[in-house]
């Protein structure tokens, strides 16, 4: 099960209700959070994808089980446009080289669980930004690379980790939005 912040039940409803319900619920959702929409309408996948893109939200993916489609959408987050302030950064390409050379690094993916589930770098560890405080069990000296979608959440995470006493923290910019390497799914 993928952890989400809100569940919208649109099972059994026909077009246009899944979209109408999603839009209504989306207003209640905090930006940056993830919503799952359960629907049985076969057209809802294409509808939701198009709707989310047009509304500026991030469509993550859809799973199907026993005829029920579960769509995952992350509400657009205007905070992500903010300036990145953490000074130590590497590019996606540099990270890829490190991974190919099997360097001794910890790769932290600080995106939401659903974003991670629909595509992450093999070997990356999922620790959503919100859960970072609870999960600081790594060795303080380990070489930590932090990645998110655009480099903003990982920027915050890198600052958090540095403040918590980690000494080798590096932000990957831009992150998954520009990642062309291998992807792995976990569902």
């Amino acid at each position: 099960m993928i952890q989400t912040d809100m569940v919208v039940d649109a099972k059994g409803l026909a077009c246009p209700m899944p979209i109408v319900k999603t839009r209504k619920a989306m207003k209640e959702l905090a930006s940056g959070n993830v919503m799952e929409v359960q629907a049985t309408d076969k057209g809802s996948t294409a509808d939701l994808k198009a709707w989310a893109t047009s509304a500026g939200h991030q469509y993550l993916g859809t799973t199907e089980q026993d005829g029920t489609l579960t769509h995952y959408v992350r509400k657009s987050n205007s905070d992500e446009i903010q300036d990145k302030t953490y000074p130590y950064v590497v590019s996606n390409e540099e990270l890829e080289t490190l991974l190919t050379n099997r360097a001794e690094i910890v790769l932290l993916d600080v995106r939401e669980e659903a974003e991670y589930a629909f595509g992450h770098i093999p070997g990356a560890k999922s620790v959503p930004l919100g859960d970072l405080d609870a999960d600081l069990s790594m060795d303080k000296d380990s070489l930590i690379y932090v990645i998110c979608r655009s480099g903003s959440r990982s920027d915050l995470a890198a600052q958090k980790l540095t403040n918590a006493g980690f000494v080798n923290v590096i932000n990957v910019v831009p992150g998954m939005s520009g990642w062309n390497g291998v992807l792995e799914k976990s569902m």
Binding site: C15, P16, V20, W51
Partner: peptide, 9 residues
């Protein structure tokens, strides 16, 4: 139906 869909957009 189109109108309600557009409103959701």
């Amino acid at each position: 139906i189109i109108a309600n869909g557009a409103a959701a957009y």
